[in-house]
């Protein structure tokens, strides 16, 4: 055999530098740093300019002097109230839908149609949800209620109830998908064990599947709260107010204060939007804008962080290694 056909191995001790290797290494590192630095820059700006504003009175006071001074308490209150109302509506609906999809639907035509609908729902721009909220919840559902129940204009106008319902539709895909994942992660052998002991399908879902999927469902719920808390467009037309001189609270039997779902409300992200665009004195209110942004971002970060902790805990419990 001729010598030329044999491949010659490089010397084991050769120090040839491969520039293409080094270049691509540097490039991917650089690109990976871009999102990190963007986040870092945003956080730096907001904390540097907003941290000084955060005082107890800022968090606990009503806005004063045409919202150029004072605090943002009604916005914090409104955000918490609306996301609570939202999750109360979205969670049962989303979990029920996910149970149907994983446990009952099979893999037929109907299943695929619903799947596609859920995926498309997740891709709808949030302003469209806002318009949908006005058209469907306020004008159609609300006005119909008023007409049938003879309640005047109680249901047929923007209020916390419809804003929360609109947000609930927006976060429904998040809840459905995360619940589906959690249900599918419960091994089939667990269902078999329960069924073989004489449990019905519902008993099996209730006593075996759901308890084991609890962590995953909760994670999805927290993530959707975080998503809902940061949205502005869906509540723009459906219930949030530019300014409200009172909290949306009603006194049950004249004494017990509860959130009034038929009142309008102020909200953090919307407050930032109007302070930046429609304020009486946009320069004077700059610290308030930064402070409000910091509060909102801290709230969503806190929620996301809680969700991550939940997920790690849940995956450990299910015996999965990767996080």
């Amino acid at each position: 055999m001729s010598e030329a056909l044999l491949l010659t191995l490089p010397k084991l001790t050769s120090q040839r530098v491969r520039w293409s290797e080094i270049l691509s290494d540097v490039l991917v590192r650089f690109f990976a740093l871009i999102p990190l630095s963007a986040l870092g820059f945003i956080m730096y700006m907001i904390i540097r300019k907003g941290a000084g504003t955060i005082t107890w009175s800022f968090l606990s006071q009503m806005p004063l002097n045409g919202m150029t001074e004072g605090g943002i308490f009604p916005c914090i209150f409104g955000t918490l109230a609306i996301t609570l109302l939202m999750i109360l509506m979205a969670l049962p609906l989303g979990v029920a839908a996910a149970i149907y999809l994983t446990e009952f639907a099979g893999r037929g035509f109907f299943f695929r149609v619903i799947r596609a609908a859920v995926n498309n729902l997740a891709g709808v721009p949030s302003i469209v949800f806002g318009l949908f909220g006005v058209g469907f919840f306020i004008l159609f559902v609300g006005r119909s209620f008023d007409h049938v129940l003879k309640t005047g204009m109680l249901f047929g106008q923007p209020c916390m109830l419809w804003a929360a319902a609109t947000l609930a539709v927006l976060v429904l895909p998040v809840i459905i998908v995360s619940t589906e994942e959690a249900l599918n992660a419960v091994p089939q052998s667990q269902r078999s064990a329960s069924l073989a002991l004489g449990a019905t399908k519902w008993q099996t879902i209730w006593h075996v599947v759901l308890p084991q999927a609890r962590g995953g469902i909760l994670t999805g719920a927290i993530l959707s709260i975080s998503r809902g808390a940061g949205e502005t467009a869906p509540i723009l037309f459906t219930g949030c107010a530019y300014f409200l001189p009172r909290l949306p609270v009603v006194h049950l039997f004249g004494v017990i204060p509860i959130v009034n779902p038929f009142d309008q409300f102020m909200e953090l992200s919307y407050h930032i939007f109007i302070m930046a665009t429609q304020s009486l004195d946009a320069v004077k209110t700059l610290p308030i804008q930064y402070g409000t942004t910091l509060v909102l971002i801290s709230l969503t970060f806190f929620l996301n962080f809680t969700a991550i902790i939940f997920r790690i805990h849940f995956r450990k419990k299910m015996g999965m290694v990767s996080v």
Binding site: P187, S189, Q190, S192, A193, S194, L195, A196, L197, G198, A199, H207, V208, Q212, K317
Partner: peptide, 26 residues
């Protein structure tokens, strides 16, 4: 029927519950 005809599976499949709750499940 499944109460009357019990089944033990190839791969042991206890519930992630206490020993007591596993047996008390049925």
């Amino acid at each position: 029927l499944r109460r009357m005809v019990g089944m033990v599976f190839q791969k042991q499949n206890p519930f992630p519950k206490s020993i007591f709750d596993n047996v008390a499940y049925g």
